[in-house]
């Protein structure tokens, strides 16, 4: 390549970032997620406040909305890749950036850059709300445990977003991608948890759960946060790789 490769990466990354931030729907979804998360945090907190005083974990309650919150990030990921197929934008993308694997990889990178700070802010807002509302009744929490948990939650949400983007790139249509992902995260996976407890830890969402949930003693066969991260990351990487392989082979 005559233009230096590193410059090219910066240029393409810039273009992918610009594509993401100029999509109004993405901001709408993120704002909606933020607001809904606060509403849910409020609901969980008020449900938690009715419980016995002094036994509540702020972290657990602040992050209880994670299960729903991840839906916003799943949508974000799907939108990032499926929006290429609206109005035939993919043709423009590929005539501008014909290096397909490179382009799709950069798109995931750009998505991660956008997601990480937002995931942190949104996850932290829930915990903060719980903290403010419950600081009198709840157990004291240590700052480093809180940071560890929030970093885990951010990582989990980012990996979920990237995984959803990869599935979106594979399926290319918003509706089936949404049905598959929401179906897995909200219906299949919770059911499997009851029916097949032996393998449940190896799904991306259940493994990812251990990235942010403080360990509790009453559960058996749990993963450490590191193991959880590993399993989750492996899933994401596999799906991104598969998406790239198909993307390169397929007619646009």
């Amino acid at each position: 390549m005559s233009v230096s490769s590193s410059r090219k990466i910066t240029l393409i990354l810039g273009a992918e970032l610009e594509k993401l931030v100029t999509l109004p729907l993405i901001w709408l979804i993120l704002m909606g997620t933020f607001i809904l998360n606060l509403v849910l945090a409020a609901a969980f907190t008020s449900a938690g406040l009715q419980g016995a005083a002094g036994t509540q974990s702020i972290l657990k309650i602040g992050l209880a909305s994670m299960g729903y919150l991840q839906a916003g990030f799943i949508i974000l990921g799907i939108l990032a890749t499926c929006s290429e197929y609206t109005g035939g934008q993919i043709r423009t993308t590929l005539t501008t950036i014909p290096w397909r694997g490179f382009q799709l990889f950069t798109k995931h990178l750009a998505l991660a850059i956008v997601t990480i700070p937002l995931a942190f802010i949104i996850a932290a807002s829930g915990v903060l709300y719980a903290f403010i509302m419950m600081k009198d009744t709840a157990l004291v929490i240590e700052i480093d445990a809180m940071i560890k948990t929030l970093v885990g939650a951010t990582g989990y949400l980012t990996l979920t977003t990237l995984l959803s983007a990869a599935i979106g790139a594979l399926l290319r249509r918003t509706t089936p991608a949404l049905v598959v992902l929401l179906g897995h995260y909200f219906i299949v996976s919770p059911l499997l948890k009851d029916f097949l407890p032996s393998i449940k830890n190896y799904f991306p969402d259940t493994a990812g759960y251990y990235m942010y949930m403080p360990p509790s003693s009453d559960e058996i066969n749990v993963l450490t946060p590191m193991q959880g991260t590993g399993v989750s990351m492996l899933w994401t990487l596999i799906f991104i790789t598969v998406a790239i392989v198909f993307y390169r082979k397929r007619d646009a």
Partner: peptide, 10 residues
């Protein structure tokens, strides 16, 4: 090419 080649919301 034929069509707009652009996302409608942008």
């Amino acid at each position: 090419l034929d069509g707009f080649g652009a996302h409608r919301m942008r």
